[in-house]
């Protein structure tokens, strides 16, 4: 039981970081299916820098920087070049899927994974989990109590009003994306050098998309999104427990168990979406 709880928390942490990053972007009116790519690229960057510097803090910062650059690209594509948000997101995901194997092959001689970082250079998972649990409070404060938060909410719900009030919607959205990218990257860095000790090509396994589902499930509000992420973390932890169990000598194939988080995510989306209302101007481009 305790095991289930702790592994839920471990698996929730990257989801919470990504969901909080995604929440900021989506509240500002930008659809972010590129969370997955940002997770991936930050995981790789953090692992590579950690191998080089053996300094986990510097590596996290580097990961955040890389993630922000990718979100910055999303900002440029959607806000400046007025590209469709989904198309831009897909392009970024593809880029983030291609870059790590290429660089990993060139730097470390293997396109599927990086070498392991020494234990001493790993990020404290406990600390990261603690941060992930407190972060939503900070996001709540940012969104509902600050000027920037007010502008983010306006950019997502009434961009015309914000623009006529003399504030650049593009700027607000870009800032939200950069910040969101940095937060999401905390999750990516945690995956590679906190939760694990190396970067693996498939290590995010759709976590970015599940985080996005958590944002929807939590109705774009920080605290409910936290609980949604915890729930999805729990569904990811379940397979590990179920794997050992067999019934009358028949054990459930691991492949079936692996589908569980995705099945539950879809199930929840399908049953709850009717009551969820996204930010009004999400995915729309200001002209």
């Amino acid at each position: 039981m305790i095991e289930l709880l702790t592994s839920s928390l471990r698996l929730s942490a990257p989801l919470i970081f990504a969901a909080m990053g995604g929440l900021l972007c989506e509240r500002a009116g930008v659809a972010t299916i590129c969370l997955e790519g940002v997770l991936l690229i930050s995981a790789f960057t953090a692992a590579s820098v950690d191998l080089l510097t053996l300094n986990p803090i510097a590596s996290v910062v580097a990961g955040m920087f890389a993630g922000s650059i990718f979100m910055g690209l999303h900002a440029f594509l959607t806000q400046k070049a007025k590209t469709d948000h989904i198309i831009s997101g897909v392009a970024i995901n593809i880029l983030a899927a291609g870059l790590p194997p290429l660089l990993s092959q060139a730097w470390f001689g293997s396109s599927t994974n990086t070498p392991s970082v020494p234990t001493a250079a790993r990020l404290s998972a406990a600390w990261m989990i603690a941060i992930s649990l407190v972060l939503p409070l900070g996001i709540h404060y940012l969104i509902y109590r600050t000027r920037f938060g007010l502008r983010i909410r306006s950019a997502g719900d009434g961009p015309e009003a914000l623009q006529t009030a003399g504030v650049s919607v593009e700027k607000v959205r870009t800032l939200a994306l950069l910040l969101g990218g940095a937060l999401t990257s905390l999750g990516g860095s945690y995956l590679s050098i906190g939760h694990s000790s190396q970067f693996l090509r498939d290590m995010t396994a759709g976590g970015g998309f599940i985080a996005l589902a958590a944002v929807i499930f939590g109705k774009w509000r920080p605290i409910p999104v936290l609980f949604a992420s915890l729930f999805f973390g729990f569904t990811e932890a379940l397979p590990m427990i179920l794997q050992g169990i067999s019934w009358k000598g028949i054990s459930i194939p691991v492949q079936w168990i692996q589908t569980l988080p995705y099945l539950l995510t879809i199930g929840i989306l399908v049953t709850t979406i009717g009551s969820a209302r996204p930010p009004r101007a999400i995915g729309s481009n200001q002209n």
Binding site: R145, G158, A161, A165, V167
Partner: peptide, 24 residues
């Protein structure tokens, strides 16, 4: 009207000319 429907009256009034730089 150039208003943000989900925000309150006071938030809409000050939007863009908020008296505080960070915390409102």
């Amino acid at each position: 009207f150039m208003l943000v429907p989900s925000l309150t009256v006071w938030e809409n009034v000050i939007l863009g000319l908020e008296p505080n730089r960070f915390q409102i």
